[in-house]
């Protein structure tokens, strides 16, 4: 499942020793190319969304392979301290929102 990087938003985590997406990816798939986040093998992604959730710039979107699901559905997490607000848009433009608690207060 390809993580899609918005090159205008990604700043390569300049302040970090290692970009956060590269640090977190359980498959060792994210790295930098020309100073921007890059997935070295789209087909090897498990779509766990760890990179998408951790990106401080909101520059990564997790997409489904087209072979499985149609364009242009979206699922965007907004990560807070102890909850995530998810916004999902289906191929017909229908929007659904979910608030998920992730930690006890």
């Amino acid at each position: 499942m390809p993580p899609k990087v918005n090159l205008n938003k990604c700043d390569g985590c300049k302040a970090e020793e290692e970009p956060l997406c590269e640090q977190i990816c359980p498959g060792n798939l994210m790295t930098l190319k020309d100073g921007k986040a890059y997935c070295r093998a789209d087909r090897d992604c498990w779509d766990c969304m760890s990179c998408t959730k951790i990106c401080p710039q909101g520059a990564i979107e997790t997409r489904l392979p087209y072979q499985l699901g149609y364009y242009p559905a979206k699922l965007i997490p907004r990560v807070g301290t102890n909850k995530i607000m998810w916004t999902c848009v289906d191929i017909n433009g229908k929007i659904e929102r979910f608030v998920v608690k992730t930690r006890n207060d």
Binding site: T62, L64, G69, Y70, Y71, D90, E96
Partner: peptide, 23 residues
């Protein structure tokens, strides 16, 4: 249905995206 999708967001979030991508 809403609760079930929320459950998926806690485990395999892109299943919710999959359903949206199938409309």
């Amino acid at each position: 249905i809403k609760q079930m999708k929320t459950d998926y967001l806690n485990e395999r979030p892109t299943y919710v995206l999959f359903l949206a991508a199938r409309g």
